[in-house]
């Protein structure tokens, strides 16, 4: 086990940030922590990177205790905090050199590890970090976190504020890193990124309520989901809410995902009901659940 978390709790003055959180991450696994802002993701990252002490529970990273053996952990992990935290007034190359020296290595020594990522920003190596685009900044930060060949990599919301193309590239890089047998713990508020992880944990209000592979999570989701569209989406939403035994109605882009608690509820019933309400261009599809559906409907 690369990361072991056992009943970790942490509270700040007025907020209970983490409550009895437990999970394990295998070596070489890409583990995703999925949850909204304020769920406790960053606190958990800080505990695991020895920046905060938990009030209760135990945690081990690469076999070292986060409380007692923080020095050993600091030697063998890579950490990329949520906000961009490189030196803005240093160039790309200077930043990378600095972090390499700090960890007692050189760019050349571990160049293989970062090569795929670094070639993309190398043309700008003499540019100051503050003049980079969001996506390039994240790539540079990842290079800096990787330059010392860490055993475990902690990425706290690495793709927040990054354009979709760069996000996609970023995740492809993570997949490649996995092949180097680096354990990666990544957090994200984007549900679509969850399906790219080996396993994910849902976290909300400081609690983890589901841990499994994305495939299993979707497979285990029982309720039927109807994707509904019509010309008057606002009216549609309020009409759907009035159906007896409605479990949830969530807007997903241009459509509404509708779930009814009763198993005997059918597409036909929904169709008849909405036709009575005189919706134009009505379109109802029974669809496969997404990670987001599962998260939104979690109890």
């Amino acid at each position: 086990m690369s990361i072991v978390v056992q009943n970790i709790s942490k509270s700040f003055k007025t907020v209970q940030a983490l409550q009895e959180v437990s999970f394990e991450v295998k070596e070489g696994e890409l583990f995703g922590l999925i949850g909204p802002d304020g769920a406790g993701k960053t606190t958990l990252f800080r505990i695991l990177t020895t920046l905060l002490l938990p009030q209760n529970g135990q945690a081990f990273v690469a076999g070292f205790d986060v409380k007692e053996e923080y020095k050993s952990i600091r030697n063998c992990v890579g950490y990329m905090p949520g906000r961009f935290s490189l030196y803005q007034d240093l160039t790309v190359e200077e930043n990378l050199t600095f972090f390499a020296t700090t960890f007692g290595t050189t760019i050349e020594e571990n160049y293989d590890l970062i090569k795929d990522i670094y070639v993309q920003i190398e043309p700008f190596k003499n540019r100051r970090a503050k003049d980079l685009s969001g996506g390039m900044k994240q790539k540079l930060a990842l290079c800096c976190a990787l330059i010392h060949a860490p055993k475990v990599l902690f990425l706290d919301e690495p793709t927040t504020g990054v354009d979709p193309v760069s996000r996609k590239e970023f995740w492809e890089m993570l997949k490649r890193l996995k092949q180097q047998n680096i354990t990666i713990l990544v957090s994200t508020p984007y549900m679509d990124e969850a399906s790219l992880c080996d396993r994910i944990a849902f976290i909300q209000n400081g609690k983890i309520f589901k841990i499994d592979s994305p495939q299993n999570i979707i497979r285990d989701f029982q309720p039927k989901i109807y994707e509904v569209k019509s010309d008057d989406m606002y009216q549609l939403l309020s009409d759907l809410k009035q159906i007896p035994d409605t479990k949830s109605t969530f807007s997903f882009g241009e459509s509404i995902h509708y779930i009814n608690e009763k198993t005997e509820f059918t597409k036909e019933k929904l169709q008849t009901y909405l036709n009575e309400k005189a919706h134009k261009n009505l379109d109802i599809q029974l669809i496969q659940a997404t990670i987001e559906d599962v998260f939104m409907n979690a109890d």
């Binding site: 020895t50 020095k71 490189l86």
Partner: peptide, 13 residues
């Protein structure tokens, strides 16, 4: 302020 202290703390320095 810019958050680099976090990274420096999580380093062998």
């Amino acid at each position: 302020e810019i958050g680099t202290m976090e990274v420096l703390l999580v380093s062998p320095l």
